[in-house]
């Protein structure tokens, strides 16, 4: 008779916020102390965070991890204030408790053979790619990264100094006149060179463009996707996206990192 095996390890953690930074009017970064997550999270993975003890908002909110320091047991999330949950999060202070599930979902995988990477970040889509650029630099694998960072306003482009330490080139692009390159990142596809692999994260409209361009240019591309989430654990089937070859897949479990060419991103 099979016997019950208790949970091997838990993905449900409590910890605390140790540092709160405001990087731009609507952009905040919280450093959290949860050693289990800091020790095991990979770029692309996310945490699913309880915002309040009450019911406004009720559901958890998912956030990608910006970077992690296994030595002191901390990691950061970076978020943009877009609604009720993220507004409440701006009131969090060092010392406040946090309740998180994580690390969840799939991570970016950069095969050994890929030496020239192109990263295309849109807005807060910079988060998982920042973590990946940092990790690749620290791995000393001799990988060259071109990091394109697009946003509507120059104000929404930050942490460039960090990125410049780790990347071959960092190209900020905004729709206002804040940087040399004005427009959307995808307007400059002819300057993207010939990478072995493209990694991207950002709004769906941008991902759709990146999908089209990389298909035309025949570049392999992986993207970190978003969707509304319930459980974050694969149970509710609420977070799915449609794939071309396997029907609906869960962003929280099969994703958030997907081969972008497999996804139906709609018109």
């Amino acid at each position: 008779m099979p016997t019950a095996t208790p949970a091997q390890h838990t993905l449900h953690h409590t910890g605390s916020i140790v540092e709160v930074q405001q990087l731009a009017p609507l952009i905040w970064a919280h450093r959290c102390h949860i050693p289990e997550i800091a020790a095991s999270v990979h770029p692309g993975q996310f945490v699913h965070m309880r915002i309040t003890e009450g019911s406004a908002p009720l559901l958890r909110r998912p956030f990608s991890v910006l970077d992690a320091n296994p030595r002191d047991g901390t990691f950061r999330i970076l978020f943009k204030v877009v609604g009720v949950g993220t507004q409440i999060m701006t009131g969090f202070r060092a010392g406040d408790p946090v309740d998180m599930l994580g690390p969840l979902g799939s991570a970016f995988n950069v095969p050994r053979a890929n030496k020239r990477l192109l990263m295309i970040a849109g807005g807060i889509g910079m988060v998982p790619l920042y973590f990946l650029a940092k990790k690749l630099f620290e791995s000393r694998r001799g990988i060259e990264v071109d990091y394109w960072f697009g946003a509507r306003d120059a104000e929404e482009i930050y942490l460039l100094d960090d990125l410049r330490q780790w990347c071959n080139t960092v190209v900020p692009v905004s729709e206002d006149a804040g940087f040399e390159k004005r427009g959307r990142v995808t307007d400059f596809a002819n300057e993207w060179g010939s990478p072995n692999l493209v990694l991207t994260c950002g709004p769906t409209a941008m991902l759709r463009e990146v999908q089209r361009i990389t298909r035309d240019m025949n570049f392999p591309v992986y993207g970190a996707l978003e969707s509304f989430m319930g459980c974050g654990l694969g149970a509710c089937l609420g977070c799915v996206l449609n794939t071309t070859d396997a029907g609906y897949e869960r962003v929280c479990t099969e994703g958030p990192v997907f081969d972008l060419h497999r996804l139906e991103l709609g018109p």
């Binding site: 509304f228 449609n242 029907g247």
Partner: peptide
Amino acid sequence: RPGNPPNRICETSSGMLNSIGLQ
């Protein structure tokens, strides 16, 4: 059953909506 196309869930006041579609 494949279920319904996304969005399948969203939050409402003190609750949530789902239309998983029996996937």
